[in-house]
Simulated scan of single mutants.
Amino acid sequence: MENNWQERWEGKVTAKLRNATKEEAWPLVKDFFNLHKRFPTLATCYGIHGSNGDPGCIRYCGGSSIPSNASGSVSWSKERLLAVDDVDLIIKYDIVDGNVGFKSYESTIKVLTHDDSSGCMLEWSFAVDPVQGFALEDLLNK
Rank of each mutant, 00 (worst) to 15 (best):
Lys37Cys: 10
Arg80Pro: 02
Ala43Tyr: 05
Tyr60Arg: 09
Lys92Val: 03
Ser64Tyr: 00
Ser75Asp: 00
Ala70Asp: 08
Gln132Gly: 04
Lys103Thr: 13
Val87Met: 07
His114Phe: 09
Gly63Met: 04
Leu89Ala: 05
Glu24Lys: 15
Arg59Glu: 10
Glu7Thr: 11
Ser125Val: 04
Ser51His: 13
Val100Lys: 01
Ser117Pro: 00
Gly98Glu: 07
Ile95Leu: 05
His114Arg: 06
Val87Asp: 12
Lys16Leu: 12
Trp5Cys: 07
Phe126Ile: 10
Asp94Ser: 13
Asn69Pro: 15
Asp88Phe: 04
Phe39Ala: 06
Val128Pro: 00
Ser75Arg: 00
Asp88Lys: 12
Ala25Thr: 15
Cys120Gln: 06
Val29His: 05
Asp54Thr: 15
Ser77Lys: 04
Ile95Trp: 03
Asp138Val: 07
Ser65Ile: 07
Ala70Pro: 03
Ile66Trp: 02
Gly56Arg: 14
Met1Val: 14
Ala83Thr: 12
Phe33Thr: 11
Leu140Asn: 07
Phe32Met: 12
Lys16Ile: 15
Asp94Thr: 12
Lys12Asn: 05
Lys142Ile: 06
Lys37Pro: 01
Asp85Thr: 08
Phe134Val: 05
Val74Gly: 02
Ile58Ala: 13
Ser125Cys: 03
Asn3Glu: 08
Val29Leu: 12
Arg8Val: 08
Leu112Glu: 10
Ala43Asp: 08
Tyr46Ala: 05
Phe33Gly: 15
Trp124Gly: 01
Glu106Ser: 09
Gly56Ile: 13
Tyr46Phe: 14
Lys92Leu: 01
Val29Ile: 15
Ile95His: 02
Lys78Leu: 07
Lys22Tyr: 01
Asn141Gly: 06
Ser107Leu: 00
Asp54His: 14
Ser65Leu: 06
Ala70Cys: 05
